[in-house]
Design a protein around this nucleic acid. Sequence first.
DNA 1: TCTTTCTATGCAACTTGTTGCATAGGCAAG
DNA 2: CTTGCCTATGCAACAAGTTGCATAGAAAGA
Lengths: 190, 190
Amino acid sequence: MALEHAILVSLLEKPGSGYELARRFERSIGYFWTATHQQIYRVLRRMEGDGMLDVREVAQRGRPDKKEYSVAAPGRAVLTAWLHEPVEPESLRHELAVKIRGAAFDDPSALISEVERHREAHGDRLRRYLTGERRDFTGPDAPRPLDAGQELQHVVLRGGIAFERMTIAWLDDVLATLHRLRAARSGGRD
Amino acid sequence: MALEHAILVSLLEKPGSGYELARRFERSIGYFWTATHQQIYRVLRRMEGDGMLDVREVAQRGRPDKKEYSVAAPGRAVLTAWLHEPVEPESLRHELAVKIRGAAFDDPSALISEVERHREAHGDRLRRYLTGERRDFTGPDAPRPLDAGQELQHVVLRGGIAFERMTIAWLDDVLATLHRLRAARSGGRD
DNA sequence: TCTTTCTATGCAACTTGTTGCATAGGCAAG
DNA sequence: CTTGCCTATGCAACAAGTTGCATAGAAAGA
């Protein structure tokens, strides 16, 4: 269960509420793991019940109270144990690729606008990542020198950036292919 | 439910049994979607019950009989409908990245062998993909010119290749970072 | 004042995916 | 003739993830 481990890492980086974790999973942690707030709340409760986390009720001004979670010793032990055991190299799961192969049984050019939409979304994500990189790691306001934790966060972010760049280049390849197929079909020549 | 759609695409490319599909999901379809045989058998039965698939009992020599599935008209309609509706751009899920960020709370250099193992696995996968590409698309035995279906299969494979290359380059970046952190820690200087 | 938005947490029902096990015929090696 | 491997299919139990809905305080704007 990797969500559990992602939560432990995030709470070690900074304690926070379920709501805050959910927002982190849309941002930094979201480079490599996603989760909905329902999933997060449920796992937090289970982890608290298992003694991995401590909770503290925090009263706030101008907002509802929140429960701030932090990692207890057993939680840290669970994370350490997991860090020392191997995980399987993962494979891609990409719905759009299923569609592209499926397009052979439909009109391939009907996919063009869908692929363009994905290209836009990945372009947006890349811009967000690059902004975050400048803010936290390479810009003038970034701490220097970076500590080990920041170096590791940076190399993970570089992975997210590389993934988005690769995906954008591939989607351009896909678009060129779809346009070529459309031209071949309408032009008559192969 | 994308597994359903991946199965429809695969069976349109070529009818086959659950066992054969499971093997395709370890190979070509596996570039972008994975599934275990249990999951495949269950979904096949459900799809057959829904009238999306036809089944044919095939007796074999020297092997157990098999059930060969093929796509029925309603299944094709389901696929077409799905191809015409948008899907959400997906995000990465990468356990190893969780570990890398978690390493800040443990000994980062303990991760080196794990990352090297992943690098090897991705290198193997890249070699398999490149072999398949030569065999089916770019080598002297490949059909020429390629038809639309083959062009689309090729562009999806190029995506798999690009993903593996990107991942390998990133893992090299990760390894360099881990080595740098180890040197900084043991050398005393930052 | 009313609606919308943001913060904050949660339940219930459902779907999807994983793990472990079981069965069974045929083949090949020892 | 036994052990292990490959083809082939499946059940049962469980874990993980999604979807839809509900609640509630406070702020902001119309």
